[in-house]
Design a protein around this nucleic acid. Sequence first.
DNA 1: ACTCTTGGCTAAAGCCCTTAGCCTCATGGC
DNA 2: GCCATGAGGCTAAGGGCTTTAGCCAAGAGT
Lengths: 192, 192
Amino acid sequence: MGRGALSPDTIVDLALGLIDEGGPAALTLSAVAGAAGVAPPSLYKHVRNLAELRALVSARVLTEIAEQVGEAVLGRSGDEAVRALMTAWRAYVRRHPNRYAVLIHAPEPQSAEAGARLLTIASAALRAYGMKDSAAIHAIRCLRAAVHGFAVLEAEGGFGLPEDLNESYDLLIHMVIAGLHASAAPGTKGLP
Amino acid sequence: MGRGALSPDTIVDLALGLIDEGGPAALTLSAVAGAAGVAPPSLYKHVRNLAELRALVSARVLTEIAEQVGEAVLGRSGDEAVRALMTAWRAYVRRHPNRYAVLIHAPEPQSAEAGARLLTIASAALRAYGMKDSAAIHAIRCLRAAVHGFAVLEAEGGFGLPEDLNESYDLLIHMVIAGLHASAAPGTKGLP
DNA sequence: ACTCTTGGCTAAAGCCCTTAGCCTCATGGC
DNA sequence: GCCATGAGGCTAAGGGCTTTAGCCAAGAGT
């Protein structure tokens, strides 16, 4: 890699590669430096420290999720939107299980934008249920909790039994949708 | 601490103390040794290595959760049991937020027993919905995903907005219960 | 052509885990 | 009562990681 070819962005690229094969523990500055063909201290010219690199990686992952989920939800509404959102989210996690384990949830500036974007997407998906303001926020939190919980458990191999996970997730999607209907503003349906 | 006062159990106790104040990153063999008044290598007489200590801690936390959840569910059934289960689970996580972050989900022998116990408890709680075999397993997975997702996000401070978290969790409980009814065997109610 | 910033380097300190090998006490059999 | 034995401590040491300090070269701009 020629001089000056290194940037925070390319460093995050390399970091994601290491995480994909080797899990979260494989993300070390030494390893990233090795992959970049550079001595470890050189990385400090581009990144403050390991914690910041983790935050940057986290932000990148969240951004990718937001992209894919946003694309999936585009043009749908109501139940269909919820299904698309949940399906796309899980699809990302299945494609990159290790990445999901490095996500940091504590509010950091780096990920704020991606988080806000996801919030917007989810809000749009739930609009058809006619919830307003805080009702929508509570509903989005529940949606997020369900998706996140399933994703974490699946990514970390927490489901031991042989039962088909797709069926379980289908059920979860149905449960969420049923729950949204049950708590939606009266007189609204999932598909207006 | 007198000679021979150290055992895997007391080491896990000390480890939990460190985690409670200081987060998951505070769990190091050096720190545990310091808390035990012992040189770090001495710990290896009781514990194979850091990975095993983590597994032991994880098993202990899971066992405590199983105890508290089991106690809460005792004597209830149907919707009430589900509500009690979810409430007790979250209560534990709120009491010890840092502990929840050290949980390992990959199947390890240490935690298998506690996991099986929790599965039994959940199965009993869902019995009133009249699901059998794999239907029950899928339902339990959804319940677990919802609880776990909310717990993780709350413990890690993932919910940024000021809206009341108790309300959100109430909604989640209602959503789960609604979903269980929607997917329950026909002709059954939450409270038989 | 000269300068100055940028981005690399080596050296080194400090923390952590882990292994190896020793020593000391308490216990149990004789 | 005595000694062997093993459990449970210890120090020493190695290797990996992060991070700081300080140096040096390459290249862009004037």
